[in-house]
């Protein structure tokens, strides 16, 4: 039973990272119905940006006390801002002109963007895994035979907090209302005086910033990264968004945590190599019975 709870912790931590990435997929899909394949790579870029910021700050080992809060804030916010800007630039350069083109054109463009980002990172940091410094002290808490690491708590907390902030923003602010309106009907929203270009850019900014936060968290959690990291994680996160109901924020979060848990439990009770099979089998089953995902609604109430 101990090992079950230990795997629960592992699954939630992994799921927290998936959830943060999935939020970006689901927001972009919600607003322009584009599967932004470059999103997984923006997430990896987040890890590399965090690494660059830490190098600039001269941090390569554990930081204690108030300095830690400063370092964390600068690094996370820096990675979020840089990734957010990257997202905006990608939207402006690659997707905006194709907004009214047939659906396949922006989709292929997104795959192309993904390759471009991967190769840029390859050029930047080389093809080998790059170590990520251990910046936070990592005390372990023992609950019986189950140990929880501080960084696991941070992953889950950050994911939940950012999701709540996002949810509040989308449902309780004017800009959020503009996003929901654009998602429902671009033309009508424009007639109501909403600048849809700005609104869509804002969506990319927020979604990519969340990927930046996930990138930092992943570097901290695994202690290393490499340029191709985003491919696998992006695929899982996209699956999480579909599982939870694409376009639905809480659904993306739920899907992320579920997939993390399914992977951990499959590894424990069946076998590691079956974890992907089980994840995608669950996805297929859910989609058969609930084609719009677990929390998805058939009517567009999406962002």
């Amino acid at each position: 039973m101990d090992v079950f709870f230990q795997q629960l912790i592992n699954g939630l931590s992994l799921g927290g990272i998936y959830a943060l990435i999935a939020l970006g997929y689901t927001m972009v899909y919600g607003i322009i119905e584009l599967i932004n394949f470059a999103h997984g790579d923006v997430y990896t870029l987040g890890t590399f940006f965090s690494l660059a910021i830490l190098t600039l700050l001269g941090v390569d080992s554990v930081v204690h006390g108030p300095a830690l809060i400063g370092v964390l804030a600068v690094t996370i916010l820096g990675a979020m801002i840089l990734c957010g800007l990257t997202g905006v630039i990608i939207e402006r350069l690659a997707y905006r002109r194709l907004r009214n083109a047939p659906k396949l054109a922006p989709l292929i463009t997104a795959i192309g963007m993904s390759f471009i980002l991967e190769n840029l990172m390859l050029y930047w940091r080389g093809p080998s895994p790059v170590p990520f410094p251990q910046v936070i002290p990592n005390p372990q808490f023992a609950l019986g035979a189950v140990t929880i690491q501080a960084k696991q708590i941070i992953v889950v907390l950050l994911a939940v907090v950012l999701m709540v902030v996002l949810q509040t923003f989308v449902y309780n602010t004017r800009l959020g209302k503009a996003m929901r309106a654009t998602a429902q009907d671009k033309d009508a929203a424009q007639l109501m005086g909403i600048d849809i270009n700005t609104t869509i850019a804002l969506t990319f900014l927020i979604g990519s910033a969340l990927a930046g936060a996930a990138g930092f968290v992943s570097g901290m959690y695994y202690g290393s990264t490499w340029f191709f990291n985003g491919f696998g994680a992006g695929l899982k996160a996209f699956t999480a968004a579909v599982l939870g109901g694409i376009g639905n924020l809480a659904g993306a979060m739920l899907g992320g945590f579920l997939i993390g848990l399914i992977e951990a439990m499959t590894t424990q009770f069946i076998s590691d190599q079956w974890s992907n099979v089980v994840v995608f089998s669950v996805l297929v089953l859910v989609l058969i019975f609930r084609p719009s995902g677990l929390l998805g609604e058939s009517l567009p109430n999406k962002v």
Partner: peptide, 20 residues
């Protein structure tokens, strides 16, 4: 005896099982 998959980066679940 377990087999990992190509490009896998998370081995914590597998290693938790190993530890148990």
């Amino acid at each position: 005896h377990e087999h990992i998959t190509s490009n896998q980066v998370d081995f914590k679940s597998l290693l938790t099982k190993v530890k148990s």
